[in-house]
Design a protein around this nucleic acid. Structure first.
Lengths: 168, 168
DNA sequence: CGGATATATTTTAAGCCTAAACCATTTTCC
DNA sequence: GGAAAATGGTTTAGGCTTAAAATATATCCG
């Protein structure tokens, strides 16, 4: 913690540290929101779907290589950082649309496996391509080392958040 | 999309870069979501309120110095980047709770002014203090020049987004 | 003036999201 | 074995959010 010792410029900046953090947070929130909205708008316009549904497909796609070939509801919930009930609703609509199917999980009759149908996999691939392309466009103005620097600073932020969680 | 549309040259670099950008986006989204959730949880637990309601109070607090002493529904909507109908609902509940009041706007009978009540101002001050403190904690692990660097890189990202918007 | 257009706002329908209560099954432990 | 606790999942009630339709008022222009 800095004491106000020096004369001119640096002290002012430090005394304003809280303000800087608030402005940083607001800018970060704003950027995230704008990108998020663009992605949602694109998914709605091009595929008549939503970001949460896309996220479910993406998680299941990544899980296809595993032994189960899919995920349980609870795994999905923890992976997407959304509530259990929310996953229930999302999976229900995806089942209704034929993009996803559920199977009983033999070794635990409370649980069930969710996995992509062929139609779901095909839909996901098309969506992922556009999703990926749009992110590429949005970040295109950043050079490689800016991208890298931002990635690393966000890693530091992640650590900072984790550290603050221990005591908060 | 004029610049990068040439065919064979950049493919490898672009595909690599795209992966980095996707990971960057996911990390940024994750950090933002975690902070957002913490703030919501704090506001709910400590003040039985929500982040959107806090945002309304914050906007009105900032507008208190102006001539009107408040904002119209439309100004609020544009400022918070949420839909008009959403503002209607938020203001209604804040009016019901006595934190906000609406006044007819003499020079345009379609519009109305929304402004803080004394109770609203008092509630906001307490909430803002905690909000500010929590952000300080979450970002505490970043040094001053890391904070500054992150702020500037997000500014670059903001420009990149704006530039991509011109053509997308 | 008066119709066409634009603006400010509300309403409506629908989806997302959560916490809390609830049910079914599994695990723990005596 | 069997009660108690834990876990997987669904349901419910309620708030947030949007787009689109509807309402009221204001402005533009012939």
């Amino acid at each position: 913690m800095a004491v106000l010792t020096e004369k001119h410029d640096g002290d002012f900046a430090l005394s304003q540290d809280g303000q800087v953090q608030l402005r940083l947070w607001l800018r970060m929130l704003s950027c995230t929101m704008v990108i998020d909205k663009r992605l949602r708008a694109m998914l709605g316009a091009a595929f008549d779907t939503t970001l949460p549904r896309f996220d479910v497909l993406a998680a299941l796609d990544r899980a296809e290589e595993t032994e189960l070939g899919g995920l349980t509801m609870g795994q999905l919930s923890r992976m997407l950082l959304v509530s259990n009930g929310n996953v229930t609703a999302l999976v229900q609509t995806l089942v209704r649309e034929g993009q996803v199917e559920t199977l009983p999980f033999a070794s635990d009759r409370r649980a069930q496996i969710v996995r992509l149908t062929p139609a779901g996999k095909q839909a996901f691939r098309a969506q992922a391509e556009r999703h990926h392309a749009m992110i590429g466009q949005l970040f295109a103005g950043l050079g490689p080392q800016e991208t890298q620097a931002l990635y690393q600073l966000l890693g530091r932020l992640k650590s900072s958040i984790a550290a603050s969680g221990d005591t908060a």
